[in-house]
């Protein structure tokens, strides 16, 4: 038994089925813990009073929107390079959740911007590039839906994903490269976080929860795709036989 065993859809299907409950429960527990910190342990902010609490979902959602895109581009690249079936399936399974988190980041940003900045939306570089990310997700999903031929669709969608990945560093560095209304990063690898420890803790716990949630739903989705694509194989037939 080695790692390559799980590159086969049949084995991965079984493994994913076993892992999903763990990730789902982990996500649930960490979400409750994170929300408890966000609303009951984290103090009010010196500038923004209670409105800053939106950060506890806004930042994890914005991180996820970019991470998921990069993971998608990674699987797409692996698929294009080695023509591995499972990689393309992973890329397809990631997109809807990535789009969801991008929408959440934009939505919570608007509902934070209105009371604090005084505007729901401005066309600054950070907000605009994040909106382009949402369009990319929607465009990639639409492209996959439009191409009936699975293999060709896989390649076209992954190619578009790779081209669009240039947008991710643009989003991340936009607040450094240009004058934006959006503030700079509170947490980054190059400097100490400019947040009180308990606030940071709540935000990180909710970020891990978002990761576990993403893994759980993506595994559910990829299992569905595996069944669909491998329906002619013996193992899927045997599996369905056993269930009915």
């Amino acid at each position: 038994m080695n790692l390559y065993t799980y590159a086969s859809p049949a084995n991965f299907y079984t493994l994913a089925g076993r892992l999903i409950p763990w990730f789902a429960w982990g996500a649930g527990i960490l979400t409750l813990w994170g929300l408890y910190i966000a609303f009951f342990l984290a103090p009010t902010d010196f500038q923004q009073s209670e409105a800053y609490r939106i950060i506890f979902i806004h930042v994890p959602a914005a991180w996820m929107s970019m991470f998921i895109y990069l993971v998608m581009a990674f699987w797409g690249a692996i698929g294009l390079a080695f023509n591995t079936r499972l990689s393309f399936m992973m890329a397809r399974a990631l997109a809807p959740t990535g789009a969801m988190f991008t929408f959440v980041a934009l939505w919570t940003g608007a509902w934070w911007g209105k009371p604090m900045w005084g505007a729901w939306w401005v066309w600054d570089a950070r907000l605009t590039s994040e909106l382009i990310l949402l369009f990319l997700y929607v465009g990639i999903i639409a492209l996959w839906a439009a191409i009936d031929d699975i293999k060709r669709g896989d390649r076209a969608g992954s190619l578009l994903t790779l081209i669009g990945s240039i947008n991710v560093p643009i989003i991340y560095f936009s607040v450094k490269w240009w004058n934006t209304l959006h503030q700079g990063a509170s947490v980054s690898v190059t400097k100490a976080p400019s947040m009180a420890a308990i606030m940071l803790q709540g935000m990180l716990i909710l970020s891990i929860a978002a990761w576990l949630y993403t893994i759980a739903v993506v595994l559910v989705r990829v299992r569905r795709i595996i069944l669909e694509r491998e329906r002619q194989t013996e193992w899927v037939k045997a599996l369905l036989e056993k269930e009915s």
């Binding site: 009073s49 409105a51 979902i57 806004h58 939505w107 919570t108 509902w111």
Partner: peptide
């Protein structure tokens, strides 16, 4: 009430 920002805070968390 969220210190007067309830509408925005719950609008964000609710939609999420």
């Amino acid at each position: 009430h969220m210190g007067g920002y309830g509408f925005y805070v719950w609008g964000s968390f609710g939609v999420t």
